[in-house]
Design a protein around this nucleic acid. Sequence first.
RNA 1: CGGGCUGUGGCGCAGUUUGGUCAGCGCACCUGCUUUGGGAGCAGGGGGUCGCCGGUUCAAAUCCGGCCAGCCCGACCA
Length: 473
Amino acid sequence: MKLASQAEDFPRWYQDVIAKAELAENGPVRGTMVIRPYGYSLWEAMQSEVDARIKAAGAENAYFPLFIPQSYLEKEAEHVEGFSPELAVVTHGGGKQLEEPVIVRPTSETVINASFAKWVQGHRDLPLLVNQWANVVRWEMRPRIFLRTSEFLWQEGHTAHATQQQARDYAVKILYEVYQDFMEQVLAIPVYVGLKSKFEAFPGAIGSLCCEAMMLDGKALQMATSHELGQNFSRMFNITFLDQNSQEQHVWQTSWGCSTRMVGGLIMVHGDSNGLRVPPVLAPIQVVILIVREGEGVAACAEKLRQELAELLGGNRVRIDDNTDASFGRRSTDWELKGVPLRLELGPRDVAEGVGVLVRRDLAGDKAAAKVAVPLAELPTQIVSTLAQQQQDMLSQATSWRDSRTQEAATPSEAVEIAQTGFARIPWDVIAEQGEESIAAHAVTVRCLQREDGSLPESSDEPNLVALVARSY
RNA sequence: CGGGCUGUGGCGCAGUUUGGUCAGCGCACCUGCUUUGGGAGCAGGGGGUCGCCGGUUCAAAUCCGGCCAGCCCGACCA
């Protein structure tokens, strides 16, 4: 069965890839998803890379409860207003109606800050840098698998600092050193980093920073966010400390997250007519050694290569496919659907000639360039360098695409026009607050604000800012 | 939540206009043999109260009413 055409029916193509690459399927409750083993392995690879960066930024992992007292959410006015429409509320437990309903967390600012209030006493307790990997629930009107599901997996970081500047600096550090670096170096997805308009900011934040990526259908996807919360939560939850002068102060805070939505972004940035393409740095399986058919010395040769590669590449990211009951064509297309970066075809003919046929998934559109016969002795080093090359090529290909889909606009109506196919860059003064609603009528929104040189503004009131507007998921 | 489309074995569909001769096709699955360098072939086989509930009728996948679910476009939303 063929995939739907990416050009003719993008949403259908997206769902076909998810089904045929065995990434995920719908769960029994509307908006929920079952993440299948291969899809989950992609998520685990993302987790491990993001987690390493979070730890490098100094945060530690912890775990907080799934259930939150309703009263906690109500402490921060904007926060509760922003989230109430999409809350799942537990009213019964143990066969009895609960005295106070319990919220299934849509995000954990409130429970975590209740703990922070106990943990922070003096300035020596700061900064407090905590992260958790968890599931959250937001009852979405219009779910789309991976992009917006009622339950999704993510990490959420929560921090407390002694000064506003320290909090702000940390939110920026996370944005660049964790998120942007991960998106570009691991996912090979270029992102615009910027500040959300007040209209688009997180409920309860004084400023929201974000990474925005461009999908192959010309729609934007928010890949991660990092919020500056000011003292909004510390005042409500009484998170105070004694500073060096023995004065009681409220802490300054941040929160930041990225989710399983990134799997959707990966598909929509790198997918092609043959399925998914996974960048090598992320790939749970980087190389599949496909035994074309059994024969003299083929299995032994494959196993020897696998061991050499496992050592060179680290981890266990080389797979041997010796399922010769299935045809060569079937197995080739299946691995292509899953997006494994490199396939090494090995059969009796190759072994006799002392070569292996190396096939690059990222070039699958160009069969001649994609396949090359490499002497067995050179294969391990050649594979290592090819993987590195593929990673680079995928990032530059995605960057060219994104850049070609970013155009200047002078008026809101021009921006709406350009946003039909990508990002429009327009002076923020021209949009202003009321313009934001007028473009919203055309399903186009301000994705983020940047300075002219692409750097982060201090606030949306700064002069000469540029707004990046687009249709979005 | 509004508009449109669709619900028939795991997936994709035909059949509904004109009620009965209707439970069918392709893929997938199982068994055997032959195959294997780009989605294998032949033979045999298993699996579906036709989304759910009710109604009309001698008779409903098919007609009527209600409900539910999925998808797309919006509204909403990180």
